[in-house]
C-alpha cells in the first residue's frame, strides 16, 4: 500500500525572501527519497507545504489523485509525519501518547489497544511503555515518534531531519528500523537531511540549494556523473597551481580558501599521475572516491555549511 507524490513547480516566498523557486520532484510509490540541502536551502518550507502545515502559494503537490490544499483532509489521513522535535507530550507515558494520538485519526481506544501493543513490541518499546516520554533518551523518543507517525497505517511517511540530535549508534538503529518497516509495508518514504551519510540511504536524492532543485538522481549515479575521484591539493601558491592544472583538459577545478579541489578524475591512476606532476608544489594532499559532499560542491560551487552541528 503506497502512493506516488508529485511536486510540480512549487514556489514559496516569505516576506523578505524567496524560500522555494519552481521545485518539481516526482516521488514514485514505494521509494525512499531524500532531500539534501543545507539550512536555508528550502527543505523545511517544502516539507511544511507538502505536509499541509503551510498554505501553497504557487505550484501544486499531489498524493495520487489528491491535491494539497483542496483535499488536505484526505491527505492528512494518508501521511505520517516524523518531526525534527518529536510531537510527543513529555508529561504522558509512551503508551498514553500513542493512544491519544491515534484518536486524532478516528481510531477508538479499543481499536488502538491492539495496534499500540503490537507496535510497541515491534519497536522494542514494550518495557518502556509506561514511562513518561521526558525520561526517554533521544534515540528512544525518536522511535516512539516513528510509532506515532505510523499508528494509522499511512501510505506515505515524511521525515524531517530524522537524525537530528541522535548519536551515531542511535542513528544507525533508527535507519535499521525504518528500512525494515519499508520492506514490510512498502510505504513511500520522503526524508530531508543535511547529513551526507544519511542521504546515502535514499534510492533517489533531490539536492536543494537556495530554494532550487539542482539535481535529482540515484546517489550512485550522482557520484558517477561527477567522475570517480576527487583530489584536494594543499598549497601556499594556489594561483600557480591552478595555472598548472588548467593545462590538462577535463578536470573540474574549484579553488577553495586553503586548497584546490580537483574533481572529475576518472581513475585512481589518473589521480596519482596528477600528484606526481605536482609533487614539489604541494604541502599536502588527499585523493578519495567522490562523495556526495563533492557532488554538492561541484553542483553548487559552495561548501556545504551546517549551522546547527
Amino acid at each position: 500500500m503506497s502512493i506516488t507524490i508529485q511536486i510540480d513547480q512549487i514556489s514559496y516566498s516569505y516576506k523578505d525572501h524567496q524560500a522555494l523557486n519552481g521545485v518539481s520532484i516526482e516521488i514514485p510509490a514505494g521509494s525512499i527519497v531524500g532531500v539534501l540541502g543545507p539550512n536555508g536551502s528550502g527543505k523545511s518550507t517544502l516539507f511544511k507545504l507538502i505536509t499541509t502545515s503551510l498554505n501553497m502559494q504557487k505550484g501544486t503537490a499531489k498524493y495520487g489523485e489528491y491535491i494539497v490544499g483542496k483535499d488536505s483532509a484526505e491527505i492528512r489521513k494518508k501521511i505520517g509525519v516524523v518531526f525534527q522535535s518529536p510531537a510527543l507530550d513529555g508529561h504522558l507515558s509512551v503508551k498514553e501518547n500513542l493512544l491519544y494520538h491515534g484518536q486524532f485519526y478516528g481510531l477508538t481506544r479499543v481499536q488502538l489497544k491492539t495496534r499500540v501493543d503490537e507496535l510497541l513490541q515491534d519497536f522494542n518499546l514494550a518495557d518502556r511503555s509506561n514511562d513518561t516520554v521526558k525520561t526517554l533518551s533521544g534515540g528512544l523518543k525518536r522511535r516512539v515518534e516513528l510509532c506515532r507517525a505510523i499508528l494509522h497505517n499511512p501510505e506515505v511517511l515524511i521525515l524531517d531531519e530524522p537524525s537530528t540530535g541522535l548519536d551515531p549508534n542511535a542513528r544507525l538503529d533508527f535507519w535499521d528500523t525504518l528500512e525494515k518497516l519499508q520492506i514490510k509495508t512498502g510505504l513511500t518514504i520522503l526524508f530531508s537531511t543535511h547529513w551526507f551519510e544519511e542521504a546515502e540511504m535514499a534510492s533517489h536524492l533531490a539536492i536543494l540549494s537556495h530554494g532550487k532543485l539542482i539535481a535529482y538522481e540515484e546517489p550512485s549515479k550522482l557520484r558517477e556523473q561527477l567522475g570517480g575521484y576527487t583530489l584536494e591539493l594543499h598549497t601556499e601558491h594556489t594561483q600557480t597551481l591552478i595555472k598548472e592544472l588548467t593545462k590538462s583538459d577535463n578536470l573540474n577545478i574549484t579553488p577553495k580558501e586553503k586548497f584546490v579541489q580537483v574533481s572529475g578524475i576518472k581513475t585512481k591512476q589518473d589521480g596519482m599521475a596528477i600528484l606526481n606532476n605536482l609533487n614539489d608544489q604541494l604541502d599536502g594532499f588527499s585523493l578519495s572516491p567522490a562523495s556526495l559532499k563533492d557532488v554538492y560542491l561541484n553542483l553548487t560551487g559552495e561548501e556545504f555549511v551546517m549551522e546547527d552541528n
Partner: peptide
C-alpha cells in the same frame, strides 16, 4: 514542545 505540529497534520 512540538505536540501541536503533530496534531495539525492529523485529520
Amino acid at each position: 514542545d512540538g505536540f501541536l505540529q503533530g496534531l495539525l497534520v492529523s485529520p
